[in-house]
Computed example of a mutant assay.
Amino acid sequence: MSASEVAVHLLTSCPSLKHFKVYMFGSALTGVGADIDILIVGPGGTLLSQVKSEFRSAGQALPLHLLCMLPSEALHTQFVAREKCVPLSQLALADR
């Protein structure tokens, strides 16, 4: 499954993602990795629990690795820029 196909699948299967900024990073973007690294940036608590549950269902057959950060953590670490994360919404557009 290509990165864009994974993005479409996750965005379609996980409605709670609308509350988060979600990115793919790592080797899956180049098609050489065995795993799919996903960064979820947003609130903790109930919303995060819900999106994790949706990811477990949507990703049963996918080798997903989730990294979750609060917005302040993502900003402080500059993780998105440093790791060249690509928004799932941008990847999904590439599939059209």
Rank of each mutant, 00 (worst) to 15 (best):
M1V: 12
S2K: 15
A3M: 07
A3R: 07
S4Y: 10
E5Y: 14
E5A: 15
V6F: 11
V6I: 14
V6C: 09
A7P: 05
A7N: 07
A7M: 06
V8D: 07
H9Q: 13
L10H: 06
L10R: 03
L10P: 10
L10V: 03
L11V: 03
L11D: 10
L11S: 00
T12S: 14
S13M: 08
S13Q: 12
C14Y: 05
P15Y: 11
S16P: 09
S16H: 01
S16Y: 06
S16R: 02
L17P: 05
L17Y: 05
L17K: 03
K18F: 15
H19L: 15
K21C: 09
M24N: 05
M24V: 03
F25A: 04
G26C: 05
G26D: 08
L29A: 05
L29R: 04
T30S: 11
G31K: 11
G31E: 08
V32M: 12
G33M: 02
G33Q: 03
G33P: 09
A34M: 04
D35P: 04
D35V: 06
I36L: 11
I36Q: 10
D37R: 01
D37K: 00
D37I: 00
L39M: 05
L39A: 01
L39W: 03
I40A: 04
I40P: 02
V41S: 02
P43L: 15
P43W: 11
G44D: 13
G44N: 08
G44H: 07
G44F: 11
G45I: 09
L47C: 06
L47K: 04
L48N: 01
L48T: 01
L48E: 02
L48M: 04
Q50N: 01
V51R: 01
V51A: 02
V51H: 02
K52F: 15
S53K: 00
S53V: 04
S53G: 07
S53M: 07
F55S: 00
R56H: 04
R56F: 11
S57K: 09
S57Y: 10
A58C: 09
A58N: 04
G59T: 05
G59C: 03
Q60I: 15
Q60R: 12
A61L: 11
A61D: 14
A61W: 10
L62Q: 13
L62E: 14
P63T: 10
L64I: 08
H65G: 13
H65M: 13
L66T: 01
L66I: 08
L67G: 07
L67F: 11
C68F: 15
C68R: 01
M69L: 12
M69P: 01
M69G: 00
L70G: 00
L70M: 13
P71D: 00
S72A: 07
A74Q: 10
A74M: 13
L75M: 14
L75G: 10
L75P: 10
L75I: 14
H76P: 05
H76L: 15
Q78N: 15
V80K: 02
V80E: 08
V80D: 05
R82W: 15
R82C: 13
E83W: 15
E83F: 12
K84T: 12
C85I: 09
C85S: 12
V86W: 07
V86Y: 07
V86G: 05
L88D: 03
S89Y: 12
S89K: 13
Q90A: 14
Q90L: 14
L91G: 03
L91F: 06
A92G: 05
A92Q: 07
L93Y: 09
L93P: 00
A94K: 15
A94L: 08
A94F: 02
D95T: 00
R96G: 02
R96F: 02
